[in-house]
Amino acid sequence: MRKILLLSEVFPPTHGGSGRWFWEIYSRFPDGSVVCMVGEHPGAQIVDPEFPHTIYRFPLNSREWGLRSYAGFRYYLKVWSRLKKLVKTDDVAQVHCGRILPEGLAAMFLNLTHGVPYTCYVHGEDVEVALTSRELKLLTKLVMRRADRIVANSQNSLRILLDKWQLPEHKVVVMNPGVDVDKFIPAPEHQRFEKWVGKRVILTVGRLQQRKGQDMMIRALPILEPRFPNLHYCIVGGGAEREALIELATDLRVSHMVEFAGEISDTDMVMHYQNCDLFALPNRRIGNDDEGFGMVLLEAQACGRPVLAGNSGGTRETLEHGVSGVLVDCSTPEPIAEALHALLQNPNELLVMGEAGRRRVLQCFSWESLAKDALRLFQID
């Protein structure tokens, strides 16, 4: 059997929704059908044996995604050189690229020299950011033009590709990320989370970056505290905004209400989802940066938790507004506080929303069904 080569810098144990997406989908492909060339990580030797296909680790990170700099040119030359070797040694028939840039550009060079077709995934924010640079915009167009197909992670990403990049609709297919419905489950009845006893907990999981909206959630806390003095906001994840968020909580005198949990294990992650009262991803658009989908919203709903999300980007596709959660304008803290006030004062409604979210995830977003869709798309028996 000739193989698919998955080319992606982001791949477990590196944190990121796209990497988890690739792991879950391609791990369900038939034996001998996939080989992976993915980014390096110090914990790779622990997780790689759990993946059923061959994994090659390679330095796929680069500060330069363009070609005008020596560093960028040298980067693509190294990746292309490695790719052409794998085409021969592993009998590669097609390349699947985690992003348009940089992975897709390297695959385009391979296509030009060896005729190997390639597919590129698009996550929304990646092609939005490319519009801010003349060089990256040109390179992105070239990669898209020669690609066999583009896989968009949401209807929102599809609209970006059609409206802003003028891609023909027949070239793009929408394939949503999903969730492990056997791993992310409602809390067992006997389970207790000691650190949150007596608290009403709002949880956010994700990189600490502006578009995720942790800052707006913190700004909403002073509004909510008089009505909910036991309110507790837990932030899971790391990133560049950590110090700014700590300073913001201090300035607003709500540090006692905010927990920075940092990066945690998958087991602890599930327990955090299971034991919060409500999950919030108060995302908003920052310049050209927007949330492409929001896998964490699916994980929370799979655990039977109601969710709040920003009405920006692709997050609206992860929930049913008014049924499993709410969509809110998260560009300012006041609408967030208003929505949370209405939800938190009605525990029965939160319970019903959580149950509805679990049902919807089981029906639409399980990895098993999504992997079958992917197998049909890529015509693998």
Rank of each mutant, 00 (worst) to 15 (best):
Gly104Asn: 02
Tyr70Gln: 15
Thr315Gln: 10
Arg305Trp: 14
Met353Leu: 04
Ala356Met: 04
Ser265Lys: 03
Ile264Thr: 15
Ala339Thr: 14
Leu344Asn: 08
Asp251Thr: 09
Lys372Pro: 10
Leu308Ser: 11
Tyr56Asp: 02
Leu343Val: 11
Ile286Gln: 07
Ile235Ala: 10
Pro282Ser: 08
Asp373Cys: 15
Leu161Ala: 01
Pro347Gln: 04
Val143Lys: 11
Ser33His: 02
Phe279Arg: 07
Ala93Met: 14
Gln191Phe: 08
Cys36Asp: 09
Phe73Lys: 09
Met144Thr: 00
Val173Ala: 07
Lys212Gln: 06
Gly238Phe: 08
Arg28Pro: 09
Lys88Glu: 05
Asp381Cys: 05
Pro188Phe: 04
Glu247Thr: 12
Tyr121Asn: 10
Met295Gln: 10
Gly98Pro: 05
Leu351Pro: 12
Ala356Gly: 00
Gln210Lys: 10
Leu162Glu: 14
Arg242Met: 07
Val116Cys: 12
Leu377Asp: 15
Glu320Pro: 01
His256Ile: 00
Asn153Ile: 13
Asp163Lys: 09
Gly238Thr: 15
Arg2His: 14
Val95Ala: 03
Met353Ser: 14
Cys364Gln: 12
Glu291Tyr: 06
Val205Gln: 11
Ser331Glu: 06
Asn153Met: 04
His41Tyr: 14
Gly16Cys: 15
Gln191Ile: 06
Ala130Leu: 08
Arg63Ile: 12
Cys303Ser: 13
Val79Lys: 03
Lys141Gln: 09
Asn156Glu: 09
Ala337Gln: 01
Val116Ile: 13
Leu281Glu: 12
Arg99Thr: 10
Leu245Asp: 01
Lys171Thr: 14
Leu139His: 03
Gln166Cys: 09
Cys276Thr: 07
Gly104Met: 03
Ser33Asn: 03
Lys141Glu: 08
Glu225Cys: 00
Glu125Thr: 06
Leu281Thr: 09
Glu243His: 11
Glu50Leu: 13
Thr250Phe: 00
Val174Trp: 01
Val361Tyr: 15
Leu370Ala: 04
Leu231Tyr: 00
Gly206Val: 14
Pro177Tyr: 02
Glu9Pro: 09
His15Asp: 03
Ser69Met: 01
Arg285Phe: 00
Pro13Arg: 09
Leu105Asn: 00
His15Glu: 09
Glu9Gln: 14
Glu247Gly: 04
Val307Asp: 05
Ala342Gln: 14
Lys164Leu: 02
Ile160Met: 03
Gly310Asp: 06
Lys137Gln: 07
Tyr121His: 14
Cys234Leu: 15
Arg68Pro: 05
Ser62Arg: 06
Asn111Gln: 08
Thr140Asp: 05
Arg359Cys: 05
Glu189Gly: 07
Phe109Gln: 02
Met1Leu: 11
Asp329Pro: 08
Ser255Phe: 03
Arg82Leu: 02
Pro226Met: 11
Asn346Trp: 00
Ile286Gly: 02
Gln363Trp: 11
